[in-house]
């Protein structure tokens, strides 16, 4: 579970194998005739980015945020709002021109969600425990209702993005291209995250989770560390939201709904709290389960609930820990 053992060379080979498999995935999908696999995998990658970001505060920092869907939604709406102003040709707030360029909208989404995370984090981190859970939920709910009431940007119905953002030299209307773009970003993101986790900053963060008092006693500014982690985590979720808005060509208040925050937490815990690849694995399990169960029965949530209950009550550390235990037994 410690971050240091996470990325030893013994783990490098399986990681490369998984990466090769992911690169080959669209071709495998075509070969087997199951083309929906590519879009499914795109969703897994996007949710994986969001869940991995949440995991930075949840698993490494020990801060249970129940409002991370807010940043996911803000990322999505940044893309949607910039696109709307681009098509209408009128600048946002009178001076920010709209755009449909991915190279601008993605950084914009990251910056905007980072700013929101800074504000929400600075206020929320003054509390702790159950109050922290509830205050993050409260801020997410406020933003949810704000977007519901903003008629200019679709209100309740959401904002339709007629065409995905453009990336020079690539045809972003092609699903396979979108998949590879998401894959590249996800890999990059995982690399950055692994650097952060193994850095001094990451170690301090883990230390804070284990004993905040001890870290403070050493003389470290505990709250600044927590806030920075919260901001990075919010930025990651914003990035995922921006990708999702491009993938769905739609941004709606549903992205900020509290059940979305719950789903992100479910992905983290399914995969394994406080591990680098756990959240990606969890996102994969969640999305695949969701689409499998929903193709069998419309009451798929019943099955999901049972599985969730089982994972929480009987597996300590999610699917990744379960795999690890099986591997050790074999």
């Amino acid at each position: 579970m410690t971050p240091q053992t996470e990325h030893s060379s013994r783990r490098l080979l399986p990681a490369l194998a998984v990466l090769a498999l992911l690169i080959a995935l669209p071709y495998l999908a075509q070969a087997t005739g199951y083309t929906a696999m590519t879009t499914l995998a795109t969703r897994v990658l996007i949710y994986g980015i969001a869940a991995a970001s949440l995991n930075l505060v949840l698993g490494y920092g020990g801060m249970v945020s129940f409002g991370h869907a807010a940043f996911f939604g803000i990322g999505g709406y940044t893309v949607g709002i910039l696109y709307q102003h681009y098509t209408l040709g009128e600048p946002l707030f009178g001076f920010i021109p709209g755009t449909n360029q991915l190279l601008i909208t993605l950084p914009a989404a990251i910056v905007v969600s980072g700013l929101f995370a800074a504000a929400i984090g600075a206020l929320s981190l003054r509390t702790g425990g159950v109050q922290f859970i509830m205050i993050t939920l409260a801020f997410a709910q406020m933003l949810f209702f704000l977007f519901v009431s903003l008629k200019t940007y679709g209100g309740d119905d959401g904002l339709i993005i007629r065409r995905a953002n453009e990336l020079p030299g690539l045809n972003m209307r092609d699903k396979q291209t979108v998949y590879y773009v998401c894959l590249a970003i996800a890999v990059l993101f995982a690399l950055v995250l692994s650097r952060i986790i193994r850095s001094r900053f990451g170690n301090v963060l883990s230390g804070i989770r284990q004993s905040e008092k001890r870290m403070a006693a050493i003389g470290l500014p505990v709250n600044s560390y927590k806030l920075v982690a919260f901001i990075i985590s919010g930025m990651g979720c914003g990035l995922a939201g921006a990708l999702m808005a491009n993938f769905l060509r739609f941004a709606s208040p549903d992205m900020l709904h509290w059940t979305k925050s719950g789903e992100l937490m479910v992905m983290v815990i399914l995969g394994g709290v406080g591990t680098l690849f756990g959240p990606f694995l969890g996102a994969a399990v969640f999305i695949v389960l969701e689409s499998l169960l929903s193709s069998w029965t419309e009451n798929w949530q019943l099955g999901l609930g049972v599985i969730l209950l089982f994972v929480v009550l009987y597996t300590q550390g999610g699917v990744q820990a379960l795999l690890g235990r099986l591997r050790r037994r074999a």
Partner: peptide, 30 residues
């Protein structure tokens, strides 16, 4: 369920009872 959650941290409690919500909602729908 809840009896098993007394000693656990908040995250486990939130998720287990979130699972219960899904179960109850779907059972009532059925």
């Amino acid at each position: 369920v809840v009896r098993r959650l007394y000693g656990r941290d908040h995250l486990d409690q939130v998720l287990a009872t979130f699972g219960l919500i899904l179960i109850f909602n779907q059972t009532i729908t059925l």
